[in-house]
Amino acid sequence: MPSTDSIMTNIYYLPKLSIIDVRGADSAAILHNVTTNAVKTLDVGQGCETFVTEIRGKTLGHGYLFRTTDGFRYLGAMNQSDVIMQHMDKYTIREDAVPTNADDQFQALVIAPGDAANLAITLPDNSAPACWQQQFAGQELTMYQVDFLGPSTVIALVPSDVMDSVCGSLAQKDITVLPEPDFHRARVHAGFPWYGIDVDDKNLPQEADRDAAAVSFTKGCYLGQETVARLDALGQVQRKLVKWSIVGIMPPVGATLDCDGKTVGRLTSIVDSSSIVDSSSEASAIAIALGFARRSHFEPGATAQGVDAETGQSFTGTVVGSDT
């Protein structure tokens, strides 16, 4: 039994993130040249969601950039750092911009929106991405405000060698740290794409449906900008990531959905969700998924059918609005 003064909160453990520190007088200029958002205008402590793009506009990374006192820090899903650093090096000739891989130095605790106050975390005045220092669970940590689980999600970046101590301090207050699969369940419910799972280097930025948060159409030239701007001018991509409500069975990752004899969707992240109600069909959904949809199925309420190739069982997917 938890104690009567226990703190109920949703806090998740992420053992790995991509963490790149970029230092040097020209770090803003180099990062401007390879990212989709307005990096140069960030003040110390401010951040932005962004894509890292190559010359054809394909995404080499997706995450957050934060301005620090001596440069920038990039945070995103794991396994991006080496590719992004090599990409930066390719376009750094005489500029003073040195990227450093800090993946192994830190682990992360992710606090769900609305739970920061329960943990005495002081949020910035608005929900924009930001970073700040704060005492937490007996340690002075850097906090980052992101949208992983919705606006005002907080990442507490914990030095790897003190993570056990931090978790022990939380346990003494009857605060349970939830494992990584629970984080991804919450992330899919929130509709946030994860690089390497939902999007990768085959995708254009607009296909992730994060334009409003992660793409500036006024910042000026950068690698891939011509492709991104052309897609914006045309009005729509041919496919984009949407959130699906699934009824029937829980399909496997990679399952496709068809409508009128054509494949219109492919699922990339799937989580059990027996408590979610699909408002368009009035039926209880057994799963929520992220997955790509063709233009015919961009809007909430669009439906398609799928079949599990191994079992032959069928399911129905309905596009629902994202929570982020």
Rank of each mutant, 00 (worst) to 15 (best):
L75G: 02
S216V: 07
G291T: 11
Y222S: 06
P129A: 12
T324S: 09
V320N: 07
T50R: 06
T59F: 01
S18N: 09
G265P: 03
V154K: 00
D43F: 07
D260K: 15
F136E: 02
M85T: 04
D200M: 11
E282K: 14
K16V: 09
F51W: 02
R185I: 07
D5C: 02
S296L: 04
P251S: 04
P181Y: 05
E310C: 02
I30M: 11
T303E: 15
W194H: 12
N118G: 14
M85H: 07
G301D: 03
D198Y: 05
K16P: 03
T59Q: 05
W194G: 11
E95H: 08
D209V: 03
D89S: 09
P159M: 04
T92M: 06
T256I: 13
G63I: 08
Q135G: 14
A25W: 02
R210N: 12
L204W: 00
V110N: 02
L231H: 02
I7M: 02
A29V: 12
N203P: 00
W244V: 13
K40P: 00
A186N: 00
Q105V: 03
T303N: 11
M143A: 11
F136I: 08
V264W: 04
P124A: 07
T318M: 08
P252N: 10
S296T: 15
G138W: 04
M250G: 06
S275T: 14
D43L: 10
N37P: 00
Q133P: 05
D323K: 08
R23F: 09
M88T: 06
Y13A: 11
Y222I: 04
R266I: 13
N37V: 05
Q46P: 01
G291A: 08
F298M: 10
Q107Y: 04
L204Y: 12
G321L: 10
Q313D: 14
V98K: 12
T122G: 01
D272Q: 14
Q86T: 14
Q305N: 13
D211P: 06
C48Y: 01
T69E: 15
G220E: 09
A97N: 10
R73N: 04
S280R: 06
V247M: 11
Q238I: 07
S152W: 03
A137N: 09
S314H: 13
Q133E: 15
Q145W: 00
R23Y: 13
D272A: 15
E140P: 00
V277M: 14
C259G: 11
G57P: 06
L31K: 05
D200H: 12
G254Q: 03
L109H: 05
V319D: 05
T4P: 15
V158D: 11
G191I: 05
R230T: 10
A186P: 03
T218D: 13
T227F: 04
L141N: 06
D103W: 02
Y12E: 03
A214D: 00
D260R: 13
V52C: 12
V237M: 06
L257W: 07
S165R: 13
P113S: 01
D272W: 03
K173I: 00
F315M: 02
E180H: 10
Q105T: 12
A128E: 14
G224S: 00
L31Q: 05
F136S: 10
G76E: 09
S274Y: 09
S6M: 08
G321I: 03
I288T: 14
